[in-house]
């Protein structure tokens, strides 16, 4: 020792870093990724590979050539955006559509605002919604998968899409939901975004994140509760017209959105009550879009709308300060 280091306290750190938190999110996504690959096969691997690679490459290129700043890809947030974008599209999406999605997600929704931490909307969701609006055919027709072990492929709309179409043709909800068995929706929900194939795998990742204290469960739980309560009221009033709570919880990417998209640090409120209001807003808007909107699914829009009011929620809902009224 020749010189003493002198700096203000504290002199130690928890060792948490942005990278370690992001790595935990990646780990939490592994069960869902594995399930999607098992059910959808090599095509899903391709979607994941293209999505992650283009997100990471794009962020690297933007920092290097446009911002001329140190690269930020080491924080792994671009990897998460890549995985989430891939899990939010059908496995049949062509590679070039995914590349366009990643340009919107990373280029427009994230880096334009100043990179990680500065964006207003969840990048993967912005990418997904852009694709949904621009390429509805690719995004809403779903083929029954062949899986790793090859099964015949049948093309068809998502459960919520089927019901909206059926209602317009005059069928009742009971007739339409009879085709779905809730246990299979929970364990192997074929036909939808590739990430929602197994609700249980997503919930497993959510529990991991809560146990590791990466996120707090309040946002997710208040979304689930609001969706259930709203659906219960409408379904109770008219079961012919409105789908039941459990069906709504298990379909339309709700679990994926509530567990992994709505809980994104950057685009969600920081305080407990802010988070609860945020979650209630997402749940309610989701149900309104599902029941009364022109899109059969509403989770992405609901999250993006609530993302926009996060600064206000952060201002309105503050923790009580010690010793102050």
């Amino acid at each position: 020792m020749s010189k003493l280091l002198v700096s203000p306290s504290p002199h130690i750190h928890s060792k948490d870093s942005t990278k370690s938190l992001m790595l935990d999110v990646v780990i939490a996504l592994i069960p869902a990724v594995l399930c999607s690959v098992i059910f959808y096969g090599w095509q899903e691997l391709l979607v994941l590979g293209v999505s992650v690679a283009s997100c990471v490459l794009l962020e690297w290129a933007i920092t290097k050539y446009m911002l001329k700043a140190p690269s930020t890809i080491g924080d792994l947030s671009a990897v998460i955006t890549g995985i989430l974008l891939a899990l939010n599209v059908p496995y049949t999406t062509p590679w070039w559509v995914i590349v366009i999605g990643s340009v919107v997600a990373i280029g427009v929704a994230k880096m334009t605002f100043g990179g990680l931490g500065q964006n207003i909307w969840n990048p993967a969701l912005v990418g997904r919604v852009f694709l949904l609006v621009s390429f509805p055919t690719y995004m809403t027709t779903w083929k029954q998968p062949q899986g790793l072990f090859g099964v015949d492929a049948i093309s068809g709309p998502t459960p919520l899409g089927t019901i909206q179409e059926g209602l317009m043709q005059g069928s009742t909800v009971q007739e339409l939901t009879a085709a779905y068995d809730y246990k299979s929706l929970l364990l192997a929900n074929l036909g939808g975004s590739s990430g929602e194939v197994c609700a249980l795998a997503l919930l497993l990742g959510f529990v991991y994140l809560c146990v590791r204290k990466v996120i707090k469960p309040w946002i997710t739980l208040s979304i689930f509760a609001t969706v259930a309560v709203t659906a219960l009221i409408f379904w109770g009033i008219n079961p012919d017209r409105f789908t039941d709570p459990l069906f709504n919880l298990l379909t339309g990417g709700l679990i994926l959105g509530a567990c992994f998209m709505a809980t994104d640090y950057v685009t969600s409120p920081m305080s407990l009550w802010g988070g609860v209001v945020f979650g209630v807003g997402i749940g309610f808007l989701t149900m309104m879009i599902r029941y009364f909107g022109s899109y059969p699914e509403g989770v992405s829009f609901a999250i993006l709308i609530m993302n926009s009011v996060v600064p206000l929620l952060n201002r309105w809902f503050k923790q009580k300060k010690f010793g102050r009224k």
Binding site: L5, S77, L116, G117
Partner: peptide
């Protein structure tokens, strides 16, 4: 005791 370089706030709270 070393402090790691400062990066963007991720608003984790």
């Amino acid at each position: 005791t070393r402090r790691a370089p400062e990066t963007n706030c991720i608003r984790c709270g």
